[in-house]
Design a protein around this nucleic acid. Structure first.
Lengths: 195, 195
DNA sequence: CGTCGAATTGATGTCATTCAACTACAGTGG
DNA sequence: CCACTGTAGTTGAATGACATCAATTCGACG
């Protein structure tokens, strides 16, 4: 935990915060979720979003055949939530599970909207975040439509180089949309090419 | 054009509009794009979003191998835009092309934000739209990760039954992420099962 | 009636999956 | 400290799904 960046410190990078706001942010509770524990299960209606201080989370769905499909990961300084379940207050089809022991700041549903009244910059920040989210999801769709197993893996390494090593291959495969065995083979081939 | 629903009429379904707002909406220019013409090309920075009065648009990218990948369609009463290019004012990687001769209402970049000053409901409406967009993109990712060619096709028929028949199979294949020939075979199999 | 592009069909190839066996390694208990 | 167990990752062989290429048919339109 030595190097954890608090939510307030993180937000300061993007917008100026009043002392009162910093205070409110600092008063938010944190929660520790051990590896394998859940912050959200399919069927539940989400009431919080989370800021990752330390650790690694996965956000995934399970299909009719029982297979896992990871939509995204979140490590230090990322936010994690089912924005849609939260916003529409409807049951989520997704799970949020800790891949490592993780410490999150718990952000209640209406926390940011209340804060927006005194700090209008939060509205803009949220809109920006929503657009970034869309940008990212569209890129992902393009990638799933166009790229082979090897290309997807390489893209992932580039994009998430900082956390790639921390993600078990089984889970990475579930993110890339390939079988774990295939990922193993792809890695082998790449390793051989380098030699 | 006999049954076209104007942008003002469409919005009335969701929020109450002042006379002044209705006036502003009615004064927006409309534009006709013939089949095969573009509203946006990759590399351009988008300055408008569009409301489809009549017709059918596609939103797609082209990969390094020259293949088309359709991200979404938009028919009557749908909005179409590269929200991200618009919001961040950065070049778009996507094309918006008319599949049929289409009539759109042209909505300038800051039109809604200006309108928001007098009609706060627009802010909420936009946020809601952004969340719906995310919901939809996540569903699509889940589908691409989990479903076979046949399942994707069936899902599409269910979800877009109203416009499915208007979409050429080559383009539908580019949406589903399969080869046109494969789509043809999938359709054949389904037809045989029914008999 | 002829032409052009879209859709179909068949033959073949490729990439990734599946299933099963095996290996590597971390954690647990004797 | 070492044997035992469980989990993740690897490897091989067989299979399957979809892609590709080429030939043909269909259908709209001049």
């Amino acid at each position: 935990m030595e190097y954890a960046i608090s939510l307030a410190d993180h937000l300061k990078k993007y917008i100026r915060l009043s002392d009162n706001t910093i205070n409110e942010l600092t008063n938010l509770t944190t929660r520790t979720v051990l590896k394998g524990e859940f912050l959200l299960r399919a069927g539940e209606t989400s009431r919080y979003s989370y800021y990752v201080e330390k650790g690694l989370l996965s956000y995934y769905s399970i299909d009719e055949k029982g297979k896992y499909h990871i939509i995204q990961f979140a490590a230090e300084e990322w936010f994690m939530a089912d924005r849609c379940s939260l916003f529409f207050q409807q049951p989520s089809p997704y799970f949020i599970e800790a891949i490592e022991d993780t410490v999150v700041t718990v952000i209640p549903l209406d926390f940011f909207s209340k804060l927006s009244e005194s700090e209008p910059a939060f509205v803009e920040m949220n809109t920006k975040a929503l657009h970034h989210h869309i940008l990212h999801l569209q890129k992902r769709i393009h990638q799933l439509l166009s790229a082979s197993a090897e290309e997807r893996y390489k893209d992932f390494l580039e994009m998430y180089s900082s956390i790639a090593a921390r993600i078990p291959q089984t889970l990475l495969a579930a993110y890339l949309g390939i079988a774990p065995e295939s990922l193993s083979r792809v890695r082998k081939e790449i390793a051989q090419k380098r030699s």
